[in-house]
Simulated scan of single mutants.
Amino acid sequence: MSASDVQTVETSPFSSSFPLPYRVLIITTIGLWAWGSNMQILSWVSIDVQALLTGGQKKNSPHRPIYKLALFMSIWVWINLLVYWKTEGSTSITLLCYLFVFLIVLCPFNILCKNERMRFIRCFHRVIFSGLDSDVYFCDKILADIMTSYAKVFGDLYVTMCILFIYNEGPIGDKYYSYVIAPLFTSIPYFIRFKQCIAVYLHSKDPKNTGREHLFNALKYCSAFPVILFSALQKWYKTDEVAISAEYWITPSTIFNLWIIAVAVNSIYSFYWDVAIDWKLSFFTPPGFKLRQHLRFENSIYYIAIILNFLLRFTWSLKLSSHLHIINHLEPSVFLMECLEVTRRWIWIFFKFESEAAEINKDPYIPLHNTSS
C-alpha cells in the first residue's frame, strides 16, 4: 500500500467512526439477533429446531437465551464505541471490550445463558478440531456454513489482533504479512466445511451413489479458494515493491480475468446448490420453476428467496475479494455487503431447516444424534 493509500484510510470518516475491530463485533451481534429470529420463526411453523440441532426434546422459547446474548452484546459494544469516540480512538478501550466479551463467552459460572454458551463451545470445538474419522452432526454443518458467511470477519480478526496487540499507530497496511495471512484466515471456514464434506463422504454407506453428492459439495467450497487467491494477488500487486518491478510472472490483467471467472463459478455453483440441494426445491428440474410438494411457507416467499439468494451470492463472492477493501470510498460498501451476507444466511437457514425436517419426517429411521451433553 502506498503512502497515499495509507493517508486515505487514515482520513476515512467511516473508518474513524466505525473502526475495523468494532465492525467485527457489530457484524457478530447482528448475526446473534438473526439466529434468534431464525429459531423463533421456525418454531412458529412447527419445526423442532432443538431436536434438529441437538437431538433433544423441544424446548419452550429456545430463542430467548439467544436474544439475551444479542442484547448484552448490543449494549456492551455500543457503550464501548461511545467511550471510544469520547477518548478519540483509544486502542485500550477496544482491547478491554474484546477481552471482556471473550471472558463472558468462556465464563464457567451460571450467568448469561450458560447452557447455550457451553453448547456453542462444544460445537465449535468439534467443528475446528474433529478429524476425517469423526461423525459430522447437523449442528456442526450449520455452524460451519454460518462461519463461511463470516469468512471476511475471520480475515478481519487477524488484522484486529495486529492492531490491538502489535501495532496501534494507524492502519497496518502490508505489515505483519497481512496481505498473505488475512486471506488465509478468510479461507479457514471453507477449509473446515470442505473437511466435513470429505468426512461425511468417507462415512457414506454408498460412496459411489449418494456419497458423490458430498464430493460435489466439497468442490463447491473449494471454488471459493480461487476467488480469495486471485484477489489477494491483485492486492499484493498494488504494493510499491511490485509496482516498480519491470517483470510479472503473470500480468495483472490476466489475474483480473481469472478473478472474474472464479467469482462467476463460485456464485453460480453456490446458488444452484443452495436452491436444489440445501433447500431441495425442484426449481431447476424440467419443466422448471417448480418448488416441492410439502411447503411450510407461502409459494411467493420461496421465489423471492431464490431471487435474493442469486443476487446476494454474487455480492458475497465480491466481498471475499480483499483487494477491494483498500479503496477508501468502498469501505462502507464492504461493511454493507457483510450485513447483506448475514441477511442471505438468515434466509438460507429457514429453508435449510425446513428441508431437513421434511427429510426426517419422510424417513423416520434417520437418527437424531444427541449433541447437547
Rank of each mutant, 00 (worst) to 15 (best):
L157P: 01
N168H: 14
R64P: 00
E331T: 12
N299I: 03
I27Y: 04
S149Q: 06
W316S: 04
L52D: 03
I255Q: 00
E359N: 15
I75P: 02
Y221V: 02
T239E: 04
S134T: 15
Y22A: 07
M1Y: 09
W33A: 03
P65Q: 08
D145F: 14
C162W: 05
L258T: 05
F191T: 11
L215P: 01
C139T: 13
I347D: 03
M39I: 06
F225E: 06
S4C: 00
I146Q: 10
S321N: 09
F194C: 05
S46L: 00
P189E: 05
S333N: 12
I47G: 00
L324R: 04
C162S: 14
P226A: 08
R122A: 11
L219W: 13
G31D: 00
F335P: 01
L99H: 10
N257M: 06
G31I: 02
L281I: 06
Y98H: 13
L324Y: 12
L202E: 08
W44V: 06
T239G: 07
V180P: 00
Q50K: 07
A276R: 05
H294I: 06
W85R: 13
S253G: 08
F310L: 14
F165Y: 15
L106Q: 14
T29Q: 04
I104Y: 05
V105S: 06
T28E: 03
Q57L: 08
I198A: 03
V49Q: 01
L219H: 10
L81R: 02
V200G: 03
F271A: 06
M161T: 13
S178R: 03
Q7S: 12
A3E: 10
A305V: 06
S322W: 02
K362T: 14
L25F: 04
T8E: 11
K68W: 02
C139P: 02
A246E: 10
N115Y: 10
G56M: 00
S204A: 11
L20C: 04
L202R: 14
K152Y: 12
R126W: 10
L32N: 04
E331S: 10
S37N: 07
P189K: 04
Y201L: 06
W348C: 02
F297I: 00
Y167K: 15
L96H: 11
W85F: 11
A305F: 04
T11P: 01
I360W: 04
Y158R: 11
R193M: 10
A357V: 05
I41P: 00
K290M: 13
V227P: 01
W249S: 11
M39Q: 09
I307N: 08
